[in-house]
Nucleic acid binder design. Structure first.
Lengths: 148, 148
DNA sequence: GTGAATGCAAACTCTTTGCATGACT
DNA sequence: AGTCATGCAAAGAGTTTGCATTCAC
């Protein structure tokens, strides 16, 4: 687990306490699973992670935990695979990345690009929406599929 | 209907013929409905449009038509509303726009930004994926919701 | 006439909700 | 004790698939 993931995990616990939520087993384990992941995961992925840890956690609890975490701004929800949502930790300093999706094998990779961020901020500034977030998805063939 | 939408409609018919597809009522009507729309629509929106035109078209045919059109590169499929896919005409010259989604009322608006396109192209060039397409979604409050 | 395309209904996947039980403070 | 959180099962929404029928070529 990276240093920022550890910090995020602690931050998330703090925010939950400060917003009056009690320590709840299923929710804590979803947070742990998210902190362990370095890129976005589906609800099913996270449920599997938790159950692999030996706990009997219902799907509904995973979804309920994720919904709360998204509402508190601790988790980002992403839509990029046919009908299946993905979730990842949202760092409090706003640091984030974007995603590459392979059209052939479905693999998801992340990338960062400060100049792209700047271009998005400029575009957002000239629009009449109060833009609070943005998602960028690039699609194509990953190195493995491109050579195959 | 705009001039480019009309051109796209004709182009789509040509591509279908060239790829050995016969003239099929439901599919043609889905194309017409897409050409009439100036921004992305859900499968249900398109089915409603067609049925409003007086035809009895099944949902399945709309989905089957859309799947084929996406495969032929004539239509873009977008994922940006909780679990519901949206579709829009993909112009052959690559001209396209991106989307603003209101977090509160769900309204979807389009925008274009050449500098953002350039930044994406540059980012794509330095990655090891063969990037063929990209989606950008900005989220926030639309003018109506921001003042309300 | 032949095979593609269709409509209908059933199946399927992902997600949410109802409700009785269990756990934190 | 009070009530928030949980697990399970059922419901819901969107999408896909099976199959007999219809239609284009």
């Amino acid at each position: 687990m990276t240093q920022s993931a550890t910090a995020w995990r602690e931050h998330a616990g703090d925010v939950l306490r400060q917003t009056g939520h009690r320590s709840a087993a299923a929710r804590e384990q979803v947070l742990d699973a998210l902190a362990e992941r370095d890129c976005c995961a589906t609800a099913q992925d996270l449920a599997d992670d938790v159950q692999r840890g030996g706990s009997r956690v219902g799907t509904a609890s995973v979804y309920r935990a994720l919904e709360l975490l998204v509402r508190l701004g601790l988790v980002r929800r992403l839509e990029m695979g046919h009908g299946t949502a993905r979730y990842e930790a949202a760092y409090p300093d706003g640091e984030h990345h974007h995603h590459l999706v392979c059209d052939r094998c479905g693999k998801v990779t992340q990338f960062e690009d400060p100049e792209l961020e700047a271009a998005i901020d400029q575009a957002a500034a000239r629009l009449d929406y109060q833009v609070g977030a943005h998602d960028v998805v690039l699609r194509g063939a990953c190195p493995d599929c491109a050579t195959a």
